[in-house]
Simulated assay, not measured.
Amino acid sequence: MSKPIIRPIEKADNEQVATVVRKVLIELGVPKVGTAYADAALDMMYETYDRPKARYFVVEDQGKLIGCAGVAQLDNYDRNVCELQKMYFLEEARGKGIGAQMMQTCLDAARDFGYDQCYIETMPYMEAAQKLYTRTGFRYIDGPMGDTGHFSCPVHMLIDL
């Protein structure tokens, strides 16, 4: 692996992003219903994030996408809170500090957009991800915020920006 780069998504990345996310979700045994797997936006991530106060990033290594994540306004929530969305990395990208770099990139974008807090939902068995989130400053909260449609994700976390 060379030195991967984190960059904003381009329209040409849509297919690779959908492939990365679905591959990771299947690998981790995540339900296909009530998670990002079933999101209609998954096949058109560039278009989904091409709006104010939203940004999606990809990790590219030698022309191949090996990870992705983004931030956008938390759905169905009227306060100034964004959500860290669809953060997934192929196995070859894990354990190399890329997740921490991506997290910083996303939170920097959220701060630049002026959000007050960032929210995330995840699965209980995604322990490595939760360790990254807590190291970054996320804390566990008692229940969901907004309505993301991800009813199969019972772990909720929040960070003040």
Rank of each mutant, 00 (worst) to 15 (best):
V155H: 00
A54L: 06
M123A: 03
N76E: 14
Q62D: 15
L25G: 07
D78C: 03
P144R: 11
M1Y: 15
R135I: 01
L132K: 09
K131R: 14
T122S: 11
G97Q: 12
M157N: 00
V21D: 03
C68T: 14
D75I: 10
T134H: 06
K32A: 09
M123E: 09
Q104E: 13
A110F: 01
G63R: 10
A93T: 05
E91P: 12
M102P: 06
R94E: 08
Y119T: 00
I141V: 05
A129Q: 02
A41L: 08
K64H: 12
R139A: 00
G114E: 00
M126A: 11
L25K: 00
G99F: 08
Q117H: 08
Q85C: 13
V33D: 13
G114C: 01
D112L: 09
Y88L: 02
I120A: 06
N14L: 08
Q62V: 10
M123Q: 11
T148W: 00
K131H: 06
M44Q: 13
P154Y: 04
I66V: 13
Y125C: 04
Y56E: 05
M102S: 06
G34C: 07
D116R: 02
T148R: 06
I9S: 01
T19I: 06
R79E: 13
I6N: 02
E10R: 15
L74H: 05
T19D: 12
L65G: 07
A54G: 11
L107D: 01
A18I: 09
T35W: 01
Y77V: 00
A129V: 03
R51D: 10
Q16I: 06
M145Q: 04
A129D: 04
I98W: 12
A54P: 00
A109D: 00
A93Q: 09
G143K: 09
L132H: 01
K86D: 04
T48I: 03
C82E: 05
Q16N: 11
V71D: 03
T122Y: 10
Y140K: 12
Y125L: 13
S2Y: 15
A129I: 02
V33K: 14
M123L: 12
A36Q: 02
Q117R: 07
I120L: 13
E60P: 09
V59K: 07
G70T: 01
L74M: 06
D13E: 10
D61L: 14
Q85S: 12
L107G: 04
Q16L: 07
A40G: 10
L65E: 12
T148Q: 09
E92W: 03
A12T: 09
C68N: 13
R22L: 14
Q104V: 09
D75V: 09
K96E: 14
A69N: 09
E121F: 04
G137N: 03
D116T: 02
T134V: 12
